[in-house]
Amino acid sequence: MKILYPFIAVIGLIVIAFLGAEAGLSSLFGIVIPYLAIIIFLVGFIRKVVDWSKSPVPFRIPTTCGQANSLPWIKQNKIECPSTMSGVLKRMFLEIFLFRSLFRNTQADIYDGPKLRYGSSKYLWLFGLMFHYSFLVIILRHMRLFTDPMPFFIPILRFGDGFLQIGTPPIMMSDVVILTGLLLLFCRRIFLPKVRFISLPADYFPLFLIFAIASTGCLMRYFMRTDVIYIKELAVGLATFHPTIAGHISPLFYIHIFLVSSLLIYFPFSKLMHMGGIFMSPTRNLANNSRMVRHINPWNDPNLTPHSYASYEDEFREFMVEAGIPVDKELPPKAEETPAAEEKA
């Protein structure tokens, strides 16, 4: 069920777009919905990030991945536990570009004995890298359809990506890698029992959706081609706010663009927000400098003043002595009269 429902949802989206395109609603699916989607994406994304940034971060969260800054003869791990801004920048760079914390993933196994064994588990890291980088290249290369004249990086990407010159139009390596990456990410969720147990429909849905987007794109490029000139006229029109659909474009294109719109609309409300969230992870973006800088909890009540032990003892010394609790400073001599007074009474 956890796999079936998101699968049906994606099939449903494809059917909606196909029927819409067949019914001649091309301007709805080609113009109105994409605009709506990009607005929801931007506004939703910004609201989410602003909402996150309203949460106070009262203290630094030192992670245990590396040695913190300590005595001079203990070597600090400056990337895993940085105490300066430059160290944090290095850690963030490695996290964002190389997914360093996924590289550390481990997996616990029980095998004959029974014995517990921890081993490294790099599947998510490797498949994630494959998927994210090829998706990035594909999105950048799509700018060839949205811009006229084109930016400088388009021919460079086309050369590098299609450099194997297999077939006509040449196969883009990013297309192969993204489909393989998605397939492997899906296999990881269904074949690793523990990962399968914690996977939810919200994990499968984006996988299926992006797989459908990539496969409709590949179909249009390699197998069921449609007139790309009309598509570019529409895409440039969308970017310059004069969208026109100049001729017949196949339903496959409307399915593709409707799925992309769905992804954009779904994005701000889903786990895909890790795109913004990675920049806001406290365990990654805070320097462990608690020993050099005083961090004040922003929700402290300003009426509560610090209460040191010395002043606490001053306040309760009599009771503490009476109860036999040891005190740093004995009661002043006049206090000794009190027991005597009591005896008299």
């Binding site: 910004i46 990030v49 106070p56 949205f146 811009t147 004249p149 913004g276 922003p298």
Partner: peptide
Amino acid sequence: MYDKGKVITGLVIFVLIVTFPVWYNVRGA
């Protein structure tokens, strides 16, 4: 909002990247 400066700078960069085709197309006919 905490770290207002950094968060808003980041969001502005994000919006500029997403709207790349819009402002890039303005430069040429």
